[in-house]
Design a protein around this nucleic acid. Structure first.
Length: 1093
RNA sequence: GCGCGGUUAGCUCAGUGGUAGAGCAUUACCUUGACACGGUAGGGGUCGGAGGUUCGAAACCUCCACCGCGCACCA
């Protein structure tokens, strides 16, 4: 810092130091370090994202925490990365595709489309990362992760497989939140309820059995009438109860014949007879509550709306192919034409909207994957018991409430961009379901025996006699020769039921007729076997139909080894045996009947037989589920999947669980709660030997950034400033400091560019305070000689001590705005405003600049005493600055690094203690008693010096009272009440900006001289003729009135016996002291007024 | 409907029972040894309302009003 500019220029400083930090590896965490660990995982921003003010707030806080932890001597890991943001990214690439090539993703096909998404990611994915670097974020970039990284994807799939095997993940046909715009299912959390203005339509329907009776139905969705399969009334409702069991004529679709439009009137408790007309139309296919009613009453489902939100043909001719909202209007028109529309009342109700696409959700029946949330009790307990702390803690209640009421999580999405569901379906079986295979009848060769043991013996004898063992038999369909081993039969005879034993009689026939339905890779991978093939055959034994599952292991040498298992086939309800189904096909002869393969599976769990949940592709006959997983299903693993899980890596051992999480409360359910559950499920004692697997110890919830009118920042409103523009204009430090200054704990932040300006101004002040020090020259960080300390020195050291305490406490409590306020107050209002000015008394003026044409003024040699005092003052300044800069570092990293090095404070430090970079300089500690004792830092110096500065303030007042211009140098006279050191006199003179300060303890002021009094003495401004006496009198009178009112207040309190007897002694003494002070002030003020004449 | 926040200076906010605060804005004056991105001095508040507890309430309790947010099956 040789040439220090007058104003701080962040642009020339910030990039330089960021590069330096990167090159030095300052952000890289070492899991082998002996230092205690501190870790944060970044809430991964979307790869599509651009930095916005929310990121600035969130990441500045994380950076402050990380940098403070490093200065505290911790080994810090701040782990960065991005997430793939399924819907957002896919929609964005689709839009681009449409714009540039006028193509849809279906035109390209899945594989090609995904190539485009990856290309887009490669091109734009690091934009936000680079923006975070601009902000100064000290993330360990060597560990940057992306949720679609191969290793990460494997974690996601492993987790899916595990949860599936535990039975926590299942596939089901359910009512889900369907987004017609993006045509995918959404989780409950992605639906936002919004009040919508619409109409409540009342229309009437005729009761079929009583044509004179009409019921009035209220609905907001007349377009769904064609999907109605009942109307419901409350069975306790006297108006309608008698109609239950009768039918009404559904008015739509109008063109259907009457008998196709009759739907029953049912009774259901769900119906609120206060609401609407008390008659509810039931549309089970398009409403969640109606679906439940439909289930209770076994109502048929009629789907009338397509996946894209248009009506289908079942909705009727005029409605078909119309968008659902257009169809609503048309439906109303038709009802009006029919004369059944009674009225349309304007009505506002809550409608679920797709959070992403901002279109109304359509409840829709579809087959999706669901997760029963794991580890819920543990997740609730850790927060409820305070082992994991939320800041502010009121979010704990919200969290608990959500966990108490959660429904299973719909995790599948009908998208292409994301983690493909690791479930495989057999394709061959599907093609073969309609294939008929002959039923092998067990007749003629019944095995003798009345118990299992006898049957078994007979079976072995049969196998032996008929040369079944270790012989091969041809399969008609594949031409393969299947080898029957002793082991195969042993298995069938020992572990399976009687039917398996009896079937040995027809074994060659079973093998011949069996149909191959699937091939699988051998799992676990084996040295001996290539693949496993599944065959199916049918057998009838004692009148019961059996599915024969034949497993063929294909040896590497081509040998195919046979194994079998029989399952009894029942009808779906499990009661009567299936042959009824066969008998119902009269064209078939009674023996040698064929059976459809599909029938063989009526009671077999096809999910386990023909569905595989595993990471690798099972075999050539298998196709993967087309859906992808909800993006949150990958980000809930973030705290450990980024650290090398499932391997027990050094990083995991050192840095998991993480220390702090900083995020917004809007994703408390989406992300925070789910991460906690994942932590318990996958890092718990069973899997990872962690006694408490919670993923973080503290969660700090930031506020939401709003504009200064309090509106949420959004792209559409255009009220979100671009942080990069702000950084370019004011500097990253300014943006950080300003944001922190205006972001109180747990409150939304009303952002104003003025805040950044404040930050910029502050950096400039810091810069110039250091510049002032630079201009004094002298030894850097010289020894402080305690005997030479002035009261002002002691005052600022004590204020520094207080500031260290305040900032440290504020940071420990995550009160960032308090910490910045404390720093601001200390540095600006105490150090710059008072101490620097006072210190000038000890720093002799530099020689005045020579006027043009004159010879330069020679430097005057200073006396040794003056030199010593000067050196000591500079040492104090260095001490204060070197501490202050460190206190500031986490908030404003760039300027502090520049100053730390430029001022030379780094030079005497060891490399790992601030010698290279301020990043690892030790965080300042409050002074201990030894330190204070050694330097004589007694609190009395604070009081004494405050009194001195108060006198100065009052003295400055006199100027204004006298209407004296600020620049005018005036002479003051001081009449001390006690001994005043020449140094203090000099300080007072300087602070008053006086031409001179005459110290005279016998001073007699002329009439009309303004005066202020203090415990130190009286300060006069003897400027006869220049003083506006009248103005000063008015001022004093006003002040006297104010003092009097204060005295009255205190006196009243002290006169109250209730007060004096009940109050603690310290408070009483305080009030008495206050009265004495006010009375003294009153006396001074009155005397001053009297002196004016 | 239930729950959670908030209401203090023109604006944004601190303030956990004992003399009402900060920053910005504003007014006047000032380029004085680092800083006009600065300095000095001011003006500006019956702390949303009403009760209560207390010697004492901006703060604690009750009710009410308004603003914001979250949750909830209302056709």
């Amino acid at each position: 810092m040789t040439e220090i500019s007058k104003a701080y220029e962040p642009q020339s400083v910030e990039d330089k130091w960021y590069d330096f930090w990167l090159k030095q590896g300052c952000f890289t965490a070492d899991p082998k370090s002996a230092k205690p660990a501190y870790s944060i995982v970044i809430p991964p921003p979307n790869v599509t994202g651009m930095l916005h003010m929310g990121h600035v707030l969130n990441n500045t806080i994380q950076d402050i925490l990380s940098r403070k932890a490093r200065m505290d001597g911790k080994e810090v890991l701040w782990l960065p990365g991005t997430d793939h943001a399924g819907i957002a990214t896919q929609v964005m690439v689709e839009k681009q595709l449409k714009k540039e090539e006028k193509k849809s993703r279906h035109d390209l096909g899945r594989e090609e489309f995904l190539k485009r998404v990856w290309a887009w990611k490669e091109k734009h994915g690091d934009i936000i990362i680079n923006q975070l670097k601009k902000l100064g974020c000290s993330c360990d970039w060597t560990r940057e992760r992306f949720t679609m990284d191969p290793e990460y994807s494997r974690c996601v799939q492993k987790v899916f497989v595990e949860l599936y095997k535990k039975g926590l993940i299942y596939r089901g046909k359910r009512m889900v939140n369907w987004c017609p715009a993006t045509q995918t299912a959404l989780s409950d959390e992605e639906v936002e309820m919004k009040p919508q203005k619409g109409f409540m339509y009342h229309f009437k329907v005729q009761v079929a059995e009583a044509p004179d009776t009409w019921l009035t139905i209220a609905t907001t969705r007349p377009e769904t009438i064609p999907g109605d399969t009942a109307v419901a009334v409350n069975p306790k409702d006297p108006r309608y109860a008698h109609l239950i069991g009768k039918h009404i004529v559904r008015p739509l679709p109008a063109e259907l014949p009457q008998d196709k439009k009759l739907i029953p009137i049912i009774g259901d408790e769900h119906v609120d007879f206060e609401f609407g007309t008390g008659v509810l139309k039931v549309t089970p296919a398009h409403d969640k509550a109606d679906f439940d009613i439909g289930t209770r009453h076994k109502l048929p489902l009629i789907e009338v709306i397509n996946a894209d939100g248009t009506m289908n043909t079942l909705a009727g001719g005029p409605l078909a192919r119309l968008d659902r909202f257009k169809a609503r209007k048309v439906a109303v028109e038709i009802l009006t034409e029919q004369g059944v529309m009674i009225e349309a009342k304007p009505y506002e109700n809550n409608v679920g909207f797709s959070q992403r696409a901002d279109v109304p959700i359509e409840p829709r029946l579809s087959e999706q994957w669901f997760l029963k949330y794991p580890a819920v009790p543990e997740s609730k307990a850790c927060v409820a018991e305070g082992r994991m702390k939320f800041h502010p803690d009121r979010w704990a209640k919200v969290y608990d409430h959500w966990l108490t009421n959660i429904q299973d999580w719909c995790i599948s999405r009908q998208l292409w961009w994301g983690h493909r569901i690791p479930v495989w379906y057999n394709t061959e079986i599907r093609a073969k379901l309609t294939k008929q295979i002959p039923v092998v009848e067990l007749s003629g060769h019944e095995l003798p025996g009345s118990n299992i043991k006898q049957l078994r013996d007979a079976a072995w004898q049969f196998a032996d006699q008929h040369a079944l063992l270790n012989h091969s038999f041809p399969n008609a369909e594949t031409g393969w020769n299947l080898v029957v081993r002793t082991a195969s039969l042993e298995h069938a005879f020992t572990h399976q039921g009687v039917a398996n034993i009896k079937a040995v009689v027809v074994l060659p026939e079973l093998i011949r007729t069996a149909s191959k339905v699937a091939s699988l890779h051998h799992l676990p991978p084996s040295e001996h076997f290539k693949a496993v093939h599944l065959f199916v055959a049918a057998a009838r034994i004692a009148g019961e139909l059996y599915q024969v599952k034949i497993t063929v292991k294909e040896h590497l040498d081509g040998q195919k080894l046979y194994d079998h298992q029989l399952f009894k086939i029942n009808t779906p309800d499990g009661k009567s045996p299936t042959p009824a189904a066969l008998a119902s096909k009269p064209t078939r002869p009674t023996s040698g009947v064929d059976v459809c393969i599909a029938d063989l599976f009526t009671n077999v769990n096809t999910d386990t037989t023909f569905t595989r949940c595993q990471i690798e592709e099972p075999g050539p006959d298998w196709t993967q589920d087309p859906d992808v997983l909800d993006t949150w299903f990958s980000s809930w693993l973030w705290p450990f999947a980024t650290m090398g899980w499932p391997e027990q890596t050094e990083t995991l051992k050192k840095f998991y669980p993480t220390t702090d999480l900083v995020t917004g409360p809007d994703i408390i359910f989406f992300w925070v709660a789910r991460m906690i559950m994942a932590g318990y499920e996958f890092m718990g004692e069973k899997q990872f030997a962690l006694p408490d697997a919670m993923p973080f110890q503290n969660v700090y919830f930031t506020g939401i950034i709003r504009d200064k009118q309090g509106r949420k920042m959004s792209k559409t409103l255009g009220n979100s400033p671009d942080p990069l523009v702000l950084i370019a204009q004011y500097g990253a430090d300014a943006l950080r400091f300003g944001t922190m200054r205006s972001a109180p704990l747990g409150q939304d932040v009303l952002f104003d560019e003025k805040d950044v300006e404040l930050g910029r101004n502050f950096c400039n002040k810091l810069w110039n305070a250091c510049r002032f020090r630079q201009m004094q020259g002298g030894e850097v960080q010289g020894e402080i000689e305690r005997t030479l300390l002035t009261p002002d020195d002691k005052w600022i050291l004590l204020k520094l001590d207080a500031a260290i305490r305040e900032v440290t406490i504020a940071l420990n409590e995550y009160k960032f705005s308090e910490a910045t306020a404390a720093l601001y107050k200390f540095f600006w209002s105490e150090y710059c405003d008072w101490y620097v000015e006072a210190s000038k008394a000890s720093l002799p003026r530099p020689p005045a600049e020579a006027a043009p044409g004159e010879a330069p003024v020679a430097a005057v040699a200073l006396s040794p005493e003056v030199e010593a005092r000067k050196a000591n003052t500079i040492a104090v300044i260095d001490f204060v600055l070197s501490h202050t800069i460190r206190l500031f570092h986490p908030f404003v990293p760039f300027i502090t690094e520049e100053l730390w090095n430029g001022m030379g404070y780094a030079t005497d430090m060891p490399d790992n203690q601030g010698g290279k970079t301020i990043m690892n300089a030790p965080w300042p500690l409050p002074f201990d008693d030894d330190f204070k004792g050694h330097y004589g830092l007694d609190d009395c110096y604070v009081e004494m010096t405050d009194t001195k500065y108060e006198l100065v303030r009052n003295g400055r007042d006199l100027r204004r009272a006298g209407n004296i211009q600020a620049a005018k140098k005036v002479k003051y006279v001081f009449k001390p009440a006690q001994h005043l050191t020449p140094h203090d006199a000099e300080v007072i003179k300087l602070l008053l900006n006086a031409e001179s300060l005459g110290v005279n303890d016998a001073y007699q002021s002329p009439k009309g001289t303004p005066v202020v009094a203090s415990p130190l003495g009286e300060l006069f401004l003897p400027l006869e003729g220049l003083i506006d006496v009248a103005a000063e009198k008015i001022r004093l009178t006003k002040e006297i009135e104010k003092i009097q009112s204060e005295i009255v207040k205190v006196e009243q309190k002290l006169a109250n016996p209730n007060f004096t007897t009940k109050v603690p002694p310290t408070v009483l003494a305080e009030h008495e002291q206050r009265l004495v002070e006010w009375k003294a002030k009153l006396a001074h003020a009155e005397a001053a007024r009297g002196a004016l004449g």
